[in-house]
Structures are given as structure tokens and as C-alpha cells.
Design a protein around this nucleic acid. Structure first.
Length: 345
RNA sequence: GGGGGUGCGCCGGAGUGGGAGAGCCGGGCCAGACUGUAAAUCUGGUGCUUCUAGCUGAAUAGGUUCGAAUCCUAUCACCCCCA
């Protein structure tokens, strides 16, 4: 598996590249729809593949480990077979859940003790078992187990947290190289830069992460409530200190404008729950801005789909088509949301 | 045919038996929020108006009273029991 940088823009730092994985190649910059529990909500694999044209999707270690359980997924032949998705899959490590389920866990040097949000049962995640779970699930891209500090965090806490993430990173890598997974194909490991909104910490973390020589370096700990300016500032700083010949993955971002802005800073990969979550609630991101498809004004003057429109994408752009979708099935909103996100590129 | 009961706002429920309510709890609806998904979740609104306030309002029409969602009469609708 490798990342190949094909072109860098002459006006800004935007890049185009290709990422090779065992389940196919990915053109970057790429937006990766999030399928936490082995499904991208509000759509299905057919539309995900054919209409949206997703080249890779995400799964989540935390959720899949709890339900249905990583052993079940492994016995089904891996996540690809379990969910019948033949293209690449990236699994998040559960590090973000350590942050988002803050009230239900305890962090120690060894790992994270947490209570299941489903039944309250106790579980323990360590860098070692999180990597093993991701190996057994069969992810093409395995994320490091990190701690995502909240915003705002004090400098002292951000530094302590970053150092812990670094120590965990070394443990993750050791397990990644030594542990034998059930899958024959190659899997790649991606480390995560932390350091909250502190530039010197981010610089230190970038250097630490870059040393690992992974094809993908991730930027974590952003889009957790900090102002956009801060997010841009830190993203910019990270892309300046991460290797040029490796892919940069900005985790959890985001809004269409965030994505465009960060592409111009040299980010190659994005994921975000926003398009699929919002689509479920009838909110679409389009080239013309946000549309609340459930609003009365969209329901009122329905006109049928324009079959004569030459391209699927321009058909998708027509308001009539959106209204048609609303009337046929609100669920379909998600495809449009993601299609429109992709059309920004 | 006889007897009993119940009727309020888009819907359902609780509550109220002369000093009150444009109230309560659900739902629906309307609007907003959501950034590595504890998210079919969360927040606000939901009679009218000239909106820091005022007006109309408790099935319908009357009556009693200083005052009625509440008491009385008639009508209408629905439910239960008897025949």
C-alpha cells in the first residue's frame, strides 16, 4: 500500500494523489462517508457505491466491538463480507468515543476503562487490543488509538494527553507489526497527530508521527467545538510539518466550506458524520447552499423529475429532483447530500 | 324505547365540580441545532392581534350569578348498560 502524490496546485497547497489499498485505489482529495455500525445511515450499499460513488467508507471499532462484536464480524469473514462492501474500509479506533463518551470512561496509562452506552457493561480498550480488533475486523486502514482532548483544554493537559497518545502510538505500532490478523491482504496503520490548539505541541506531535513513516498521517483533535479560525490555523500548521509525500487525513471535518478550505492547505482525506446525519433530518448540502428539504416551501410546488437533463449530476442539482426525492423517499436525501459534497472537488 | 356517562384548542391523556387558562404531559406539526455518529437525537415554538400588552375561547344555544369550563334547561355528538 502506498500513497502517490500526482500533482500540487500552483496557486495553493492543494494536491491530487492516489492511495492504493488491498480493496482498490482511492483518488484524493477524498471525502469518506461514515458508516459507524457497518452501515452508512440513511442510504444503502447500492447507492453508496453507484450514485454517491464513495471510494472508501468508515467503520468504528468501539461500536462494532460492542455490537455485533468483533468475533462475529471476524467469523463472518471480516467487515467487507459482513456488510457486503467490496471497496476500502477505514476503521476509527474508538479514540473519539473516549472523548464523546467522556462521562462513562476512565483513562489510564494502560488504556481506557469504559461503560458500554448500550448496556452499561464494563470494557477495557488498550492500544494493543484496539489494533487487534481492527486487524480482525479487516480494515484496510487502521487508526491509532489516541486520546482526543476536549476544547478548550489547558496547555498542561493537552501536553500530557499528547504524550500519552504518543506512547500509545508506539504500543499500537508494536502490536500492528507483531500481531497476526486473520486476513491475508495488507492493512495499513495510520498514526494521529494531537496537541489541541497549541502550535508547539502540534509541531512536536507532527514530528513524532512523521517518524513512523506511515503512508497516511492523521490530524485529530480538531472540529471539537473550537472556532473555525483556530481549526484552520492548526490544520495549516500541521500540513506544513507533515511529510509531503504522505497522505494527510483531517479527522472529523466537516462542513463543505471546511473541506474546501483544508484541501487548499494540503489535506487529502476527510470524514464527517454531518452529511449522513443531516440528510436523515432532511438537510442537504448543495452547491447553492444549505437546503432544508422538509421545509414547506420544498413540499409545496412539486414538479416531476426532469428526465431530459443530460447528466445525473445536473439532474441532481435541479430543485425539482430534490422535491421528487422528498416525495418518493426522504431517506434518499443522504445520497444527494453526499453527491453534492463530492461535487465540490 | 328506557337509564347512565362524557364533550376545550391539530390529536391523545391527566386534571379541574363557582374566583378560571390561552395551563400541564405525550404525539403531530413548524423552526433551529448537530464536524474521527450514545443522534429516527437535542433545543425552541405551535388561538388571534397593532405582541413588555390586549382580544377571543371550554360541543351548540340559552339561563342562574357580582362572577360559569364548573350549576340549570334544551339541542347535537360519542360511549356504556338494559330492552
Amino acid at each position: 500500500m502506498a500513497f502517490q502524490l500526482l500533482h500540487t496546485d500552483s496557486e495553493c497547497r492543494a494536491r491530487a494523489g492516489v492511495l492504493q489499498t488491498a480493496h482498490g485505489s482511492i483518488d484524493t482529495p477524498i471525502f469518506m462517508p461514515v458508516g459507524t455500525r457497518a452501515t452508512v445511515k440513511a442510504t444503502d450499499n447500492y447507492y453508496l457505491d453507484n450514485t454517491i460513488g464513495a471510494q472508501i467508507i468508515l467503520g468504528n471499532t468501539y461500536h462494532l466491538y460492542l455490537r455485533p462484536g468483533s468475533d462475529i464480524i471476524e467469523s463472518a469473514g471480516g467487515l467487507h463480507k459482513f456488510m457486503d462492501w467490496k471497496k476500502p474500509i477505514l476503521t476509527d479506533s474508538g479514540g473519539y468515543q473516549v472523548y464523546s463518551l467522556g462521562s462513562m470512561r476512565k483513562i489510564s496509562e494502560e488504556g481506557v476503562m469504559f461503560n458500554s452506552h448500550i448496556d452499561g457493561s464494563r470494557h477495557f480498550f488498550t492500544p494493543e487490543n484496539v489494533v487487534k480488533i481492527q486487524k480482525s475486523i479487516g480494515a484496510d486502514i487502521i487508526m491509532a488509538f489516541d486520546e482526543c482532548p476536549p476544547y478548550p483544554s489547558t496547555y498542561a493537559y493537552a501536553m500530557k494527553s499528547m504524550k500519552l497518545t504518543h506512547r500509545w502510538l508506539d504500543r499500537c505500532l508494536k502490536t500492528f507489526h507483531e500481531a497476526q490478523g486473520p486476513h491475508a491482504y495488507s492493512q495499513v496503520f495510520a498514526p494521529i497527530v494531537q496537541g489541541s490548539v497549541f502550535k508547539d505541541l502540534r509541531r512536536e506531535s507532527c514530528a513524532f508521527v512523521a517518524e513512523k513513516n506511515s503512508p497516511i498521517n492523521a490530524i485529530g483533535g480538531l472540529s471539537v467545538g473550537e472556532p473555525h479560525d483556530k481549526m484552520y490555523e492548526i490544520t495549516d500548521q500541521c500540513t506544513q510539518h507533515l511529510p509531503l509525500d504522505k497522505a494527510r487525513y483531517l479527522m472529523g471535518v466537516g462542513l463543505p466550506e471546511n473541506i474546501l478550505e483544508c484541501i487548499s492547505m494540503g489535506v487529502d482525506m476527510f470524514d464527517c458524520v454531518l452529511p449522513s446525519r443531516n440528510a436523515r433530518h432532511g438537510i442537504l448540502y448543495t452547491a447553492e447552499g444549505l437546503i432544508h428539504i422538509k421545509n414547506a416551501r420544498w413540499k409545496d410546488d412539486f414538479s416531476p423529475i426532469d428526465e431530459t437533463s443530460p447528466s445525473p449530476l445536473s439532474r441532481n442539482h435541479s430543485k425539482a429532483y430534490l422535491r421528487h426525492l422528498f416525495l418518493s423517499k426522504e431517506i434518499l436525501a443522504s445520497q444527494i447530500a453526499t453527491v453534492h459534497n463530492l461535487s465540490f472537488y
